[in-house]
Write a protein that binds this DNA or RNA. Structure first.
Lengths: 242, 242
DNA sequence: ACCTGAACACCGTTCAAGT
DNA sequence: ACCTGAACACCGTTCAAGT
């Protein structure tokens, strides 16, 4: 993710405070630059360890300077989540509602895998999730369902099923990724433990996993298609519509 | 949740350090009492704000005393999550694999709604989730699928679909609960905003919500049944089995 | 053996002070 | 107008000291 390329031209250059490398002038802060730094750090190390002081450091600035552009950590995090929602593809001008919603869900799935913190943050209970891009995303799903002929009730139903699968499955998938720091010895030891404790089916399951490296996308689509077909069955028989 | 009733008899009574109310002797600490206090506080205020110092306070003890029974906060949290997994009903001696797995999923859903922190913690990416009760839960799901006639691959597939729906949908549901602190004025204002910003379908959706108070359980079962039926379709035609 | 107080290295955020 | 340093009220955890 390199936002800087397309955005560098718009940055004000300020000479007043010397940056970490005093020879080059430092770019002015802005909410956008802060968001970019936050996203980059979150992509790298996750959101959980992320601190305002770290973000400041990364920008060559004290943490307190951030508060000139952002009301607090919570607002900053919800801003970057909304940025991700803004990138979900919603414009599939196909006449087929199933194909269109399928493509939106897969686009969202891809983005959430790229930025795991977005998925994690939206699903954190108690966090405020009402933000413009998210609302647009929901509106677009509801609109496509209603225009396909679903009743308001079934459209709500369908949105719930689709959105919960898109977010929920993806977070589940992310949580089951093998962390990069895990050693082969650890895995070996784990399998040995499964074997010794009579977890025969789990052992078999682990072997399926190692033989079929990553079928996350297909599994996401498997559940997604079940939902789409299940919704289709709720639709009244279509005589006039294509 | 009152574990204390059934467990009180086993507590050692220690007189040495005076409790907050000096007249009564204080119960000895134990991992179990610490877990109970942690679960109670997490039920009440959520996990995010929970601190070791708070847990200590609640037990009339310094935070540092907890470390005599628990290696750290992470171990403590994974212990209480595993406790919840241990309460999921796995023993459904019905011959029908679908009914049996359905009942397990619904039992898990109920427990996760009761203890939202459990669902939140298991799905936190990067957290260690390998614990005995969780392994037993997975093994039991895999076993039922394999015994129903699924191949190792399809059983893995099925476990993924069932578990991701059970955890993922429930967390999604929890995240969409209206927080208790929200005022009617706020909701009113929100609806007004939706109206003004041309979010017609969202407004309609909000109205569906307010007319049908809570249909979370039915929606959980809706997705669950889609998965179970979808899996059934993968099963080879059953000539000998019931 | 178990609990404590002080301490360390962190948090998010406020606020008066600098330029 | 924007950035800073010091400070406040918190974290999880270590460790030597108490009993």
């Amino acid at each position: 993710m390199t936002y800087s390329v397309s955005l560098a031209l718009h940055y004000k250059v300020v000479n007043m405070p010397a940056g970490p490398n005093a020879s080059e002038p430092r770019l002015a802060l802005s909410k956008q630059r802060i968001m970019e730094a936050t996203m980059a750090l979150a992509d790298l190390n996750g959101v959980r360890g992320l601190s305002m002081r770290q973000i400041g450091d990364h920008l060559g600035v004290q943490a307190m300077s951030l508060y000139n552009y952002v009301s607090g950590k919570e607002e900053l995090l919800s801003s970057i989540v909304d940025h991700v929602f803004g990138e979900i593809r919603l414009d599939f001008p196909s006449g087929n509602w199933k194909a269109s919603l399928r493509a939106t869900a897969i686009s969202a799935h891809d983005l959430f895998l790229e930025h795991p913190w977005s998925c994690e943050l939206v699903l954190t209970p108690g966090s405020i999730w009402i933000s413009t891009a998210r609302l647009r995303y929901i509106e677009s799903i509801l609109a496509r369902l209603r225009l396909a002929g679903f009743s308001p009730q079934d459209a709500s139903h369908g949105y719930h099923a689709l959105d919960s699968h898109t977010l929920g499955y993806t977070l589940w998938e992310l949580g089951h990724r093998i962390p990069s720091g895990i050693s082969d010895d650890f895995v070996e030891e784990l399998l040995h433990q499964l074997d010794q404790n009579n977890y025969g089916y789990l052992l078999e399951h682990a072997n399926v996993h190692s033989s079929e490296p990553d079928y996350g996308i297909e599994e996401f689509a498997f559940g997604l298609d079940l939902i789409l077909e299940g919704l289709d069955a709720l639709l009244p028989p279509h005589d006039t519509l294509k």
